[in-house]
Every structure is written in structure tokens, then in C-alpha cells.
Design a protein around this nucleic acid. Structure first.
Lengths: 128, 128
DNA sequence: TATATAATAGATATATAATATCTTTAATTG
DNA sequence: CAATTAAAGATATTATATATCTATTATATA
């Protein structure tokens, strides 16, 4: 019952990127790994998922790196959580009680409240 | 980012116990394990944590078993989550940004909303 | 008191997932 | 072409949850 470190890394990396002039610059993973004190290889794997999800772009080769997409101001914390960990169900009922199971329903309600909070948090708001 | 199976088992076991005449009967783990289709040994380990947390009592020996505490009507889903998994922080910031870290703050707010929902759910309400 | 029943505790096993590293490949610049 | 940088694949490491097994302790009752 924890958010993954990968999500933590991704959020911090993105906030760092926003600070470094938003979508105007390309930042190599090397820079980010120094800033966050995380290995380049692992951070790169994490960021690749953010690329796939289309919140940043990447360019290989010299002078390459990661750059925020132009739409970055609308990206939410929830978007990143999903990009890293996928859409998860917090509570998987081991028992096949179907939809009428009240335990399941209670957990779902709690989960919805968690998710909605994260949907209302834009990365932009975390950088002020 | 998931609730544990142990929590799932505990909630179902407790709801089952409530159905079986509340706090008036002792129910051996054998019965519960049949009802939930979970091994007696593991379920027993799980329930011992609920005993420690004082939401049920246990008596060894013949005619023994688990019995709800008299206060069971006030026990919440959150109480059980804590009894099983302890008080957890959903998001542990790997970076020592201190309290002013906005990422941390956003995650905390989401977590609070999750927890408050579970605090407002009594086991009693899951059994109607 | 002996026997059967039932929870608890400790040791250990199994499974799974997250985290991390290493190496190779592909793309880009100058 | 040489240097740089991301991506991908293979693998290793670590951590944790889940589960089982055995031994021990407690209780009821025949």
C-alpha cells in the first residue's frame, strides 16, 4: 500500500524539468540523475514510460535529452501515476462476491477519493 | 499500490462473524477458513493481529474460537487496515525536501482523503 | 487425568514485484 | 567517423507478502 519509488522519481524529475525553463529545453538524463541522486539507467527506464505516455519527448544522440510536451501545463499527478504504475485497483477482492459486495464498494469509494484528489493536482501547481 | 490480501481476508472474516450473530458466538478459524476458502494457518495469523488490536477476542481449546468484542459496532474499515498493515504512509518521498515539498503535500492530501473515507465506514455498514 | 480441540509463535518456504544494473543497439550531432 | 544520448533486453538484487509446517500453550469435557 504505497506509491512506487518510480512514481516518486518521475514526479520529481518532471518538476525539475518544469523549473528548468519548461518545454523550451532538452535535458539529458544525466542532469536529472545528478539533481535527484538516482542512477541514470533506472531513471531513464522510468522516463521512457513518461515518453510512451506522451507527456515528454526524447531525442537520442548528442544534444539530445528529454523535453516536456507543450501540453505540460495540463498534466496532473494522476496522469503520471498512471503512466508509471498503470491503472490499478487498490483493492482486489479475493472473493467472487460480484458488484454487490459492500467491502469492495467501500474500498472503491475510498480509492475514488484518492484518485480524484490526484486528478485535481497539476504538476504546474507543485512548482510554485 | 494495493491493499494487502491479509486486509481483504480480515474484512471478510469480520463481516462473516458479524453475520453469525455478532458478539454472541465463538467461531473457530476452521469455520472461517471454510467460509472464505483460505488456509486456516494463514487466516489464523491474520486474525491474531486483530486480536492484538482488540477488536476480537480469542479462546484456545475445545469450544474455543474468535469472538467479536462488544464494541464491534464502532469498528471502522480503517481500524482493520491499520491493525493488519500498520499506519502507513502511502507516499514516501525519497528526497529530503522537508515539509515544504509540494509533491509530498499533494500525495498527503490524497492519502488523507482515502483514509477519511475508510474511517467513515463501519464494519456494521458493510453487512446490511 | 487423559484426550481432543483450538489459538499462538517461530521457523521456514514460496511467490511476486520493485528496484537496480549491465550491455547492446539505435539515433543524432558536429 | 567519433562522441553523445535514449531505448531495449537480460539479468541481478532486494524486499515483502503470502503461505505452510511444526511445536507449544490453553481449554473443555469425557
Amino acid at each position: 500500500m504505497k506509491f512506487s519509488k518510480a512514481t516518486d522519481y518521475a514526479l520529481h524529475a518532471l518538476v525539475y524539468m518544469i523549473h528548468r525553463d519548461g518545454d523550451t529545453v532538452k535535458i539529458p538524463v544525466q542532469d536529472l540523475s545528478v539533481a535527484l541522486n538516482v542512477s541514470t539507467t533506472y531513471l531513464s527506464k522510468v522516463l521512457t514510460r513518461i515518453v510512451k505516455a506522451n507527456y515528454i519527448t526524447s531525442t537520442s544522440g548528442a544534444k539530445g535529452g528529454y523535453r516536456l510536451q507543450q501540453n505540460w501545463e495540463n498534466v496532473t499527478v494522476y496522469d503520471i501515476v498512471v503512466a508509471i504504475d498503470g491503472v490499478q485497483t487498490l483493492f482486489e477482492d479475493s472473493f467472487d462476491h460480484g458488484n454487490e459486495c459492500r467491502i469492495q464498494a467501500a474500498m472503491m469509494e475510498a480509492q475514488d477519493n484518492l484518485i480524484n484528489t490526484l486528478k485535481n493536482k497539476k504538476l504546474k501547481d507543485l512548482t510554485v
